[in-house]
Amino acid sequence: MQHDSYSNAYILSILRSVRTIAMVGASAKWNRPSHFAMKYLQEKGYRVIPVNPGQAGGEILGERVYASLAEIPEGFEMVDIFRASDAAGGIVDEAISLQTEKGIEVIWMQLGVRDDAAAARAEAAGMKVVMDRCPKIEFGRLNAELAWGGFDTKVITAKRRRVRLA
């Protein structure tokens, strides 16, 4: 699959099916981008489990931090990689080795993170892959919230969105 652009339907299918996300590179510092993304995704109802060897044993936004994907005791459907591109390959290989045990279905690499070879390995193992995107921005875009900041969501529809009662 090409990874230069994604259809809205592809991104939506991922954001709708995933419930639990392992976030590699999550930071405890409130003004880091990973912290922004984790907090937002929690607000939207996802469980986000932080992975960060430097902060293992600690807590971020109420969740215990693990040193690696393998150490997370529960299952998770998506791995969100908040690391430089050259670190992505190793994380993807770890995820492939844990795929059945943890139930991993999606590899997501953050804005600016791209490793086409690693993506091909994950796809060969049957996982869906998104690269160079942020799940917070994509959720906000498809939920019409990104538009509030003046951005082009590329969502064109005359359908009335359903408002869920809280």
Binding site: A147, D152, I156, T157, A158, K159, R160, R161
Partner: peptide, 12 residues
């Protein structure tokens, strides 16, 4: 299409 629809979905 975009000059009519971009940004403007029915108010939910």
């Amino acid at each position: 299409t975009r000059m009519i629809h971009a940004g403007a979905q029915p108010e939910p």
